[in-house]
Nucleic acid binder design. Structure first.
Lengths: 207, 207
DNA sequence: GTCCGTTAACTAACGCCGTTAGTTTCTAGG
DNA sequence: CCTAGAAACTAACGGCGTTAGTTAACGGAC
């Protein structure tokens, strides 16, 4: 086959299959050869659509961030909007946990990230925040959401009672975390989010 | 050379040179062949000291986390201790920005991370927090610190006035962020940290 | 002092990887 | 109809992490 009558590949199809591979088997499992194989094609053909493999991963990231609901920003009161947006942002990450290390990595120059930054900044300024604070709050929320989506805290612990008791005096019961990591991570996120927005509201009152 | 009179390698020396490579040229620049070359050795010799390359990177991570000052925990009042510890944690990350994506990645089962979790959990419980809340607060702080160390928020913007004005109505002045990313990221971290701990103090009062 | 198991270096090689060069054939636009 | 460019191909390069198998020095036991 030299050139098919109808194209075998498209950017969308490549991103779709690449996302499936990463979701199923992790970032490291995404190689140009495997991606091409699952697309029914040879690896170099990908380079007719993307200049590098990194651009493919970038496109995966953009498509994930593009799915974050922004409708509450500028509509609801800012504290509620901020919390709802943070939850939507985090759950978009959580739907593709293997991509998060890449997403959180570099500065996000992808279009969807800019649209998101624009929306949250605009909502805060409209609500009465000074521009400088609005920038910092957008950044802080990104820090928190990215960090919480990144690595499970509770997964760091293994279900072995003896392991911690010996060396870490306060972690006697830490082994129990292993079995409930999803719940622990979720409730830690909720606690932090409430505290953070609560602190921001107090700061806002002082303006 | 088959076996030298005094060993050429040691775990410490490998970790030291590996850290220097990652700091200088990034995680991707760390290959077993380059690491070996800079150690004056052939690549497979590394496998006498570490089972996999990942274990080498793990050891880099552990040595960084081991440097975080924990002395304020259990000594100062918990809100101040928590803030000072978060700043120390973050600046340890910031000293090795290229390692952070790896550090933040998986659950941290390395000894230094466990010691750190033990110290912060112990300090909170001693201060009067219920154990469940202490766990969540430790996790939340880790989320925030890891997220803030991970990717610069401000670096996501390029110093090009026209780029944003067209597509993102509120980001008219975003291009100015590019020149001040360090300051923006630092002050966003400070603002978030103050708000977060402030919110936690209010929650503590309500107990 | 000699033996011997272990250690720490080596060389050679395997099967991956991302990517480039060069070729072929089909499509789309004038 | 002709032609420029797009989209597939094959072949190959240099690098990667890792394994197998070899060799010589070390350190303890007799």
């Amino acid at each position: 086959m030299v050139r098919p009558r109808t194209p075998l590949l498209s950017r969308d199809r490549i991103v779709e299959v690449a996302t499936a591979i990463v979701d199923a088997d992790g970032l490291d499992a995404l190689s140009t050869r495997r991606l091409a194989r699952e697309l029914g094609v040879q690896a170099p053909s990908l380079y007719n659509h993307f200049a590098t493999k990194e651009q493919i991963v970038d496109a995966i990231g953009d498509s994930i961030v593009a799915g974050v609901d922004l409708s509450m920003l500028g509509r609801d009161p800012w504290p509620e909007a901020l919390k709802a947006w943070a939850r939507a942002y985090r759950s978009a990450f959580r739907a593709h946990p293997n991509v998060v290390p890449f997403l959180a990595r570099g500065p996000a120059r992808r279009p969807a990230s800019l649209r998101l930054a624009d929306a949250v900044y605009g909502a805060l300024v409209t609500a009465g925040w000074p521009p400088g604070d609005a920038t910092r709050i957008g950044a802080t929320m990104r820090f928190f959401v990215a960090g919480s989506a990144l690595g499970s805290f509770a997964l760091g612990f293994v279900d072995d009672p003896d392991l911690y008791a010996r060396d870490y005096p306060h972690l006697r019961d830490a082994h129990r975390l292993a079995g409930q990591h999803a719940h622990v991570d979720d409730s830690a996120f909720e606690l932090g989010l409430e505290a953070l927005v609560d602190g921001l509201e107090r700061r806002f009152e002082r303006l």
